[in-house]
């Protein structure tokens, strides 16, 4: 289960209304390389994980990404909460405004609604971890593009924090991948159940062992 803690992982206190910025930052809420996709990817993939290290890594990073989702939602909200119609129009926020008002909706910067097609859960622990490492790099790039689009220190600080977390996550997934590979390569004994005819069991029932 999950337990909610009523505070942000990193403080956000934005003083300047800037709907144009909210319009692009929303991509890290519900866009292709956003935090929702990240969290959902890891907390889905973990069910197929095979080592204690990778189970823990997927669970804990999947959880941290939810805290990042909350930070991004907070930024979007604070950037738009006091916006008037003039500012909304000037910022090109009007299309978003028509569909969602000043609510926070999981969509990309270009307005595409969130889809689970942004992520994969392949049931193969090595394949999944390679995807995760790529995903962290894509998120890092996105944060860098977002940082290029603002000079507001109230926005830059949390973006910088989130970018750095993606680098740490990439590192940890790399270590988890090495750990899973070592496990796969290690010598193991396989125990295979005897087929029915060797047990003298005539039953064809798969569940009647």
């Amino acid at each position: 289960m999950w337990i909610y803690e009523k505070k942000l992982e990193f403080p956000i206190k934005i003083k300047k209304t800037d709907p144009a910025l909210a319009k692009v930052i929303i991509s890290q809420f519900g866009g292709p390389d956003g935090e929702l996709a990240a969290s959902l990817r890891y907390i889905s993939q973990r069910f197929a994980a095979v080592t204690p290290e990778s189970k823990a890594t997927l669970s804990d990073i999947g959880t941290e990404e939810l805290a990042h989702l909350e930070m991004i939602g907070t930024m979007c909200r604070q950037l738009t909460a006091d916006a008037n119609i003039d500012e909304i129009k000037k910022a090109g926020f009007d299309a978003y405004y028509v569909d969602h008002g000043l609510g926070v909706y999981p969509a990309s910067a270009s307005g595409v609604p969130f889809t689970a097609a942004y992520l994969q859960s392949k049931g193969d622990p090595i394949t999944d971890l390679y995807e995760d490492m790529a995903a962290e790099q894509k998120a890092r790039s996105t944060y860098e593009y977002l940082m290029n689009l603002t000079d507001d220190p109230d926005v830059l600080e949390p973006l910088r924090f989130l970018r750095e977390r993606e680098i740490v996550h990439f590192q940890r997934f790399g270590e988890a991948l090495q750990n899973v590979k070592a496990y796969m390569d290690s010598k193991r004994q396989f125990v295979i159940d005897k087929p029915d005819y060797m047990n003298g069991n005539k039953s064809k029932c798969m569940k009647c062992r």
Partner: peptide
């Protein structure tokens, strides 16, 4: 209090991830 807890929790989150792969 808010600042100190944010710092401590950040170190804890980061160390937890580190320990996941360096138990």
């Amino acid at each position: 209090i808010m600042k100190r807890l944010a710092v401590l929790d950040f170190i804890a989150v980061d160390l937890q991830l580190y320990l996941d792969t360096h138990p």
